Each structure stands twice: as structure tokens, then as C-alpha cells.
Computed example of a mutant assay.
Amino acid sequence: MDEVLRDASPRKGSWDVAALLADASADKPPVELEPAQAPGVFAEAVQLLKGTPSQEEVQRALGDLSAACEAGLQASCSFLHESLSRPKLISGGRFVSPHPRALVERGMFALLIFRCRFDTDGRVRDCKVIEGGPVDGTQRALDELYASLYRPPTLAGHPLSIPYTFHLRFTPPKGELTREEELAWARQRVSQHPKSASAWMTLAQWLAVQSPQDRLYPQAVARAHSLSPGSWWAATEVAWQQVQSGEYAAALITVRPSMRREWANSYVLETAAAAYFGLGQCLEALKVQERAVELMLKAWPQPEQERFQRKAQEYRTACPPEALTTSTPPAE
């Protein structure tokens, strides 16, 4: 029997607001704001969303909120994270593997990736195949996607027409790939689909886990960041590599957008702190690292928590005593 993916709702782990915003603005000229402009633009967007805006106005508000977030206004970043709701499957979404049943029963895995658009009526439209399988099976999955009905994504309760990328992974009954097989599959995917952001991101993440010394790792991370600039993970990994190479200014430029959007992410903050320290900005490094320590999850392994704390102590020891008495905020 073919494996059925019963629920095609976006999974919680895949709801990356920053990546979604980057995807949504890919075909539009970016809105750029100076930090001083951000509060006013943010206030206007929030006020607009309190009324009954048109879809054009909702889209404009989304762009303005994203620009204010990029300008370093944490209130705007928080509003986006709290007010953007994910789509939810209402009916349909029953997919079968694109491969013949005989291959599925023998353990054939499959992954289909479609870049589509959610419309405000909850329908999926304008799909493009990013990674496909056999033609007939891929078309069958695409037809099912078009026939499915979702509660559309919303911004402050207002339906959005927004791009979204679907990842449909099919596993045979009782089938599970080992880590080594996952890595081998990721290598195969980038070979077959060299323009797939998902393929490069998956390869980079598996290499990070299994083989960070692999010569392909820097290239995989760079490609993932290039194809998915909204991903905080890829940006942070590229910036960390730049720190290790002594390219501190470049690292800060790379990680700064993620630092603004993901201001509560300890790994982003750790990378930014290392860049500040490399630039000789000791106090800024200490403040950012201390915030990273403060925001660490209690569930983190003890060695990881201790590593963050040791780094904060290292910065504290390196800072001149007089610097520790100042209150200069971290540079933006």
C-alpha cells in the first residue's frame, strides 16, 4: 500500500517567519527604512490592521512591518512573530508517493517540493515544481494540492495571499533512513536539483551534524544562504565561518539581519558577539553574549550552557575595567 501523507498543513518547525517574509518579498522591490523612520511606519501599519484593510493594504502593511523589523525595531519583529498565523488544512491533503507501489514496498523514499501561492480563499495556486519525481506521480500530488482547502495564513486576523513552499516527504511503511543515508540522499538532491534552496539547506544541516570538516560544507552553507537569505541558521553559519577566518566586519554584516529578526536566538547572538569581539568592540560583545546566556533554554545540554557562560566570562575578563562601568548599547 502506498504511504499517504494525511495532513499537508505546514509543520510547526517549518513556519520560519523570517524565511517566509523573504520568500514573500522575493518578487518585489524591498522597502528600506532608516532606524529613525521605523517607529512611525510600524505605528501606521498596526493602526491600518486594526481596521478593515483591503488585500493591497494588508500586503503593504506586511512589507512595512518587515522593513521596520529589518531596521532594528524589535517591536515590529515581535508583532510579526505574534500576528502571522500559519495556514491550516481544512480538507484534502491526502497524498500518495509518486513512485509505483512495488517500489514503495521495497523501501523507496520520495520528496516533492512545490513553490505555490496561498490565496485569501484558502486555495493553493500557481505552483512550480522545485523537486519532483516521476511525472505522473508528481502531477497526481499537484492535483491533490490544488484540490485541497486551507484556512489561509493571516496577518493580525486578515487573510493573506502569500508564497509558500510545500515539502511533501514520503516514507515507506516502517521505513526510516539512517543518518548516513540522509546525508547521501541530500548529496543526491543537490546533484539533481542544484537550484533547490531546500536541497542545499538539508545538505548543509546534515553536514553540520555529521561531517563539518567536509570540504563541501562551506560551499553548502554558502549556497543555502544565497538561495534562502531569510534563513537565520544559514546566515549564522556563514557568519561563524567568517569569524573563524578573521573576517569580523563581514560576519557582522551577514548576521545583523538575523540578529534583528531573531533577537531572542542565543546562537545568532553568540555569533554576533564573536564578531563584535573580533572588531575590538569588547563591551558590545559582552552585552550580546550575556543576553545569549540569559536566553538559553533550560533544556540545553549542560556542556553547551557552560560553553556560552565561559565565552561571556572570556569577554568580561578581556574588557578594560573602565569599559564595564559604561552603558553603551550594542551597535546596530
Rank of each mutant, 00 (worst) to 15 (best):
P212N: 07
E105D: 15
A61F: 02
T254E: 11
H158C: 06
W15V: 08
S66C: 01
L168R: 04
S66G: 04
S327G: 05
E105W: 06
G137D: 06
R115E: 12
C69W: 00
A38M: 00
R125V: 10
L84I: 15
S196H: 03
S91E: 15
A323W: 03
A299K: 07
L216Q: 10
Q205H: 12
G175Q: 08
P53C: 11
A299L: 09
A274T: 03
A38Y: 02
F118V: 02
Q309S: 08
P30L: 10
L269A: 04
S211E: 13
F170I: 13
R125C: 04
G13T: 05
D214Y: 07
E3R: 07
E270A: 09
G175M: 10
A197K: 00
K195M: 12
P29S: 12
C319N: 05
H167T: 06
E290D: 14
R260E: 00
S327V: 07
R310L: 14
R169Q: 15
V255L: 06
K195I: 02
D64H: 02
L155G: 05
V221Y: 09
E181P: 07
L283Q: 06
L89C: 10
S25M: 10
A156S: 15
E70L: 01
A249P: 04
P329L: 09
G280I: 12
E314Y: 12
G175N: 07
F42Q: 00
A250D: 11
H193F: 15
P229I: 13
F277K: 04
D27M: 09
P172E: 05
H193C: 03
L65Q: 02
S266Y: 08
A71G: 01
K128S: 09
A22P: 01
Y150S: 01
E304L: 09
A26W: 03
M201F: 06
P320Y: 15
